[in-house]
Design a protein around this nucleic acid. Structure first.
Lengths: 182, 182
DNA sequence: TATGTACTCTTTAGCTTCTAAGTCTTCAGA
DNA sequence: TCTGAAGACTTAGAAGCTAAAGAGTACATA
């Protein structure tokens, strides 16, 4: 285990001040938003990781469980669809499914109507783990947002989805400029 | 390279609707905020990763460059401080520095005043890469936020730092409940 | 001065997880 | 029936990590 003590991350404001010293053309307000977003997400992922670890599942497991649950009952997908969905090669997906079968989270069997295909199906235990993880996550999320008024929640949701739309319909090229893809 | 075509991620609203079907106790507004945060961050990280890849540096390199720049001139740190800062073991740090020395991004030399220690120092080339990456990142960030009014930017920055403060001073325990650490 | 101890970094061995490339099986169409 | 395409698995190997052992240096203390 890596030792994290002794050399603390600078606070958000310290970091922005340092950036301004090292890089002239910096809008501190933009940087504050972007850095806070990044940090907030990092902390939240640490929290989620701890919670799923307490359930004995890795974040790799979690991704697969999520994809299967989102596919809806009867919670079945083929390995290659899962691989595409998660951005893995089929080989990596094979290994990941091996592990999850051993852990009892999913089953793997041939599709009898087309024996080239394989069906990965969520077990009741896998679904239970997903439900438990969701339960813990929603408690955490509720407490995280508890100080926000209803108006603030509405406004925050609206602004974030606006930013998300913008980043989903555009990606930066080599020069760092947003360019429409469609 | 993994194939991502053909099995698209559900839209944010589709995903939340699916969550509600599978998990009763879900506040859709909370979930929308949290999911948008996660997606936004993921897309941004993809964008940053593309930009730094265009400069020929990995995200591992980027973390080290950032830590050294933030330490301020003369941009020097010891391997163990870097390791603690980045959450790596000293062994992993040794390997990472090996690579970066080979890439010309940093130098490594003994501290002559205390020959137990080693000094990792940013090269002008390493600093140039950091500056170039920052230039691209700020252009991207500016365009990302360009539709937000000054009031919206202020409000967003304020809300995000509030959430960040909350998550930094509390971490969930096994039950998913936020509990103060200090 | 000598020596034990602590500190810092590196080396070694091994693990995990990924990719690329090749193989096997099955199905569809000429 | 033959052939090609598609899906999943196997194998080989790369990358990056950890833990633990090792080597070199500094320092306190007898």
């Amino acid at each position: 285990m890596a030792d994290t003590s002794g050399v603390p991350e600078p606070t958000l404001d310290e970091q922005i001040a340092a950036y301004q010293r090292e890089f002239r053309d910096l809008d501190p307000q933009v940087e504050k938003i972007v850095s806070a977003l990044g940090r907030l997400n990092r902390r939240m992922n640490v929290a989620y990781g701890r919670q799923t670890a307490n359930l004995g599942i890795s974040s790799a497991d979690w991704e697969v469980l999520k994809a299967l649950v989102l596919s809806g009952a009867p919670y079945r997908m083929g390995p290659s669809d899962l691989a595409k969905r998660l951005g893995l090669t089929p080989a990596a997906m094979t290994h990941r499914i091996d592990r999850m079968v051993a852990e009892g989270l999913v089953t793997r069997e041939r599709d009898e109507s087309n024996r080239v295909r394989v069906i990965v199906e969520l077990t009741p235990e896998g679904r239970g783990k997903w439900l438990e993880a969701m339960r813990m996550a929603t408690v955490f999320e509720g407490e995280l947002l508890q100080d926000l008024s209803p108006e603030e929640r509405t406004a925050l949701g609206e602004v974030l989805t606006r930013l998300l739309r913008r980043v989903e319909h555009a990606q930066p090229d080599a020069g760092g400029r947003l360019s429409d893809l469609d």
